[in-house]
Design a protein around this nucleic acid. Structure first.
Length: 476
RNA sequence: GGCGCUAUCGUCUAAGGGUUAGGACGGAGCCCUCUCAAGGCUCAAAUACGGGUUCGAAUCCCGUUAGCGCUACCA
């Protein structure tokens, strides 16, 4: 049974890179019919915050993917300590009594180990420990007995590193708290994780992990490191330098559909290799394999002015268009409310949705695109009422005729209205565009709007006539 | 500095010894059309550089350059 884990540390909000790692894990597990474990890696008590934790849940829940099991490392410290001391008992770790402040820096060369502490006898080590002297437990990298640590990665292939280049990393801090490396491996072993999919920034750490798994006497899980997500400035995506533009909630608040966001991120560093772009969740699960993951970092195309990658926006628009009107209306509701349309009822939005579906790219666009369905257009420039090759007289003529036709139309549906208005234009010897522009501006408050007749139908006779009258007042 | 990884249009990517180096976003143009969109069609746009191997290299090898990552008692 495939078991994967997503293991964020609650030291900041969930950002797009973390979300992608989660998505890859989820897709892989679902493709295999396996289990997704969410594990909060909160061993760094100094930096953890509840706000971060909340933000991680908030972001993950928005994705609508879900997970199957949940753990917090801070509740599993005994497992970590037991693992650390088991390694110590095997002679594969040693106590380092060097005070934290005196930890060897690395001026020029790399710091590898502290020979004095490494060679301490067991008796001496035990004596100093029981005397209460603080220490950090370090892994004893086998740099004499072997020359290479080799890992096999599903994405990067065979990768090796000389033990001579690996430092004696810490397992337990002087506070007794486990380090990330130890806690992560001990938990992966205990939780029977079969596959580790994580960011490539961990590739170099993996040699340490391979050593820990070996010392623990367990098999190293299958590994797949993911290429990193980069900012346009070339740096690795970071909460600190790139700010909220990389927060998952920024996408949610702008009106991305969760699945469109998932679709976009799935395509960063992975390809179905068949030119498919817009894919349903089912298709993504169906096609996702480790072979499709590539090795080079992907840049997300955002700027200070526009935080969203154009391709993400396009994909969102595509998914929006694929939504049925009921679903779209339901998702639009909170954004309409936020735009200040207090009279935006589900019924009204249901009528509006088909008219704006192809004209919005983000759900929040409802505010700019559908405003005249909910508020009276009053502040437009009267000059807009005047059509091409026309004047105020012509505009007034068109509006007056429209008011007449619309007040007497036998029914107020778009087909009836279109026939009536086209006939009226012919009667006035006006081109349809000349006839319709004044009406459109009168009714919508601008020249660019959804199809006119459907719009009139949704607005209803009373509203339309009142707006035509108002416009007539402006041109005469 | 040491070590590891990477390099195809502006961006995401396909092609993994033989292709006019393909697709998508974005850009430009045309068509459709009551405006705006959507849709259809067209165009511009790439194998980092230098050496090898080979009849033939984007693809394999070496080097250079560049970028990223790791080098914590952070994760």
């Amino acid at each position: 049974m495939t078991r994967v884990r997503f293991a964020p540390s609650p030291t900041g909000y969930l950002h797009i890179g973390g979300a992608r790692t989660f998505i890859f894990n989820w897709l892989y597990a679902r493709h295999q019919g396996g289990v997704v474990v969410l594990r909060i890696d909160d061993t760094d008590v100094e930096r953890n915050t509840q706000t971060s934790l909340d933000s991680i849940y908030e972001g993950l829940e928005w994705l609508e993917l879900g997970w199957d099991e949940f753990y917090r490392q801070s509740e599993r410290l005994e497992i970590h300590r037991r693992a650390a001391w088991a390694i110590f008992e095997k002679g594969l770790a040693y106590r380092d009594f060097t005070p934290a402040s005196a930890t060897p820096e690395n001026p020029g060369g790399g710091w590898l180990c502290n020979p004095g502490m490494r060679e301490l006898t067991r008796e001496e080590s035990d004596r100093r420990a029981s005397a209460g002297e603080p220490f950090v437990l370090r892994f004893r990298v086998p740099r004499e007995s072997r020359r290479e640590v080799v890992i096999s990665d599903s994405v990067y292939g065979r990768v090796s590193k000389s033990t001579g280049d690996l430092e004696d990393f810490a397992l337990l801090r002087s506070t007794g708290m486990p380090t990330y490396h130890l806690a992560s491996c001990a938990d992966d072993a205990d939780l029977r994780i079969t596959d580790i999919l994580r960011g490539q920034e961990h590739l170099a750490n993996t040699f340490k992990h391979a050593l820990i798994f070996e010392a623990l006497g367990v098999e190293t899980p299958k590994l797949a490191h993911l290429p990193l997500l980069m900012a346009p400035d070339g740096a690795k995506l970071s909460k600190r330098v790139h700010g909220p533009v990389v927060a998952v909630t920024t996408y949610r608040d702008a009106g991305f559909l969760p699945h469109a966001f998932v679709n976009f991120l799935a395509l960063l560093g992975w390809s179905p290799k068949n030119d498919r772009e817009m894919m349903s969740r089912e298709e993504l699960v169906e096609r996702f394999t480790l072979e499709g993951i590539n090795r080079s970092n992907a840049t997300i195309n955002f700027t200070d002015e526009d935080p969203f990658d154009p391709k993400a926006v396009w994909l969102n628009a595509e998914h929006l268009r694929a939504l049925d009107a009921d679903d779209l209306a339901r998702r639009l509701l909170p954004y309409a409310a936020r735009a200040g349309f207090s009279n935006a009822t589900p019924e009204k939005l249901r009528a509006v949705a088909p008219l704006i579906r192809e004209r919005i790219r983000l759900l929040r666009d409802v505010g700019a695109v559908a405003d005249f369905f909910f508020t009276e257009p009053r502040s437009y420039d009267p000059a807009e009422l005047i059509p091409q090759k026309g004047d105020a007289t012509l505009a007034a003529q068109a509006l007056r005729k429209a008011r007449e036709v619309l007040s007497t139309a036998p029914a107020f549906d778009h087909a009836t209205l279109e026939a009536a208005l086209r006939a009226a234009a012919a009667e006035l010897k006006l081109k349809s565009g000349q006839m319709f522009q004044p009406i459109r501006v009168a009714v919508c408050g601008r020249k660019h709007a959804p199809p006119l007749f459907e719009t009139l139908e949704v607005l209803g006779r009373d509203t339309v006539l009142a707006r035509l009258t108002f416009a007539l007042g402006l041109v005469s």
